[in-house]
């Protein structure tokens, strides 16, 4: 597989570690040295490159998943409460 074309830089960090750090790496939340190691590893490892791409895809797809749009069970009661409380506090502010 990918590791047969292994380069020395790849072994600074294992695939298992890269996989573990993938989300933090994608969000830019890894320290510089770790970032360098991962980036170097990714240039030589197809397996990890695929893995990180898939995690990025999941992150982006989850944001776009159609959700069932929920509505409050009693919107009328909420609106009434809002109107009542705001009326009172606006009155207080005026006094």
């Amino acid at each position: 597989m990918a590791q047969e074309e292994g380069q020395p830089t790849i072994s600074e960090i294992t695939c298992q570690e890269v996989a573990q750090w993938a989300s933090a790496y994608l969000d830019g939340h890894v320290e510089d040295e770790r970032k360098r190691q991962i980036t170097a590893h990714l240039t030589g490892c197809a397996g990890c490159e695929t893995y990180v791409k898939q995690i990025a895809m999941v992150r982006d797809v989850v944001a776009l998943l159609p959700n069932t749009v929920e509505e409050p069970s009693d919107p009328h009661r909420l609106r009434q409460a809002f109107a009542r409380v705001r009326r009172c506090s606006i009155k207080e502010e005026l006094q």
Binding site: Q3, C48, Q54
Partner: peptide, 21 residues
């Protein structure tokens, strides 16, 4: 090869978020 992929993920070649959705 300790710590390296034994079963690497297979590329989702032609997949896009749009296609999945």
């Amino acid at each position: 090869w300790t710590g390296h992929w034994a079963l690497p993920p297979q590329p989702w070649d032609d997949q896009t978020p749009e296609k999945l959705l």
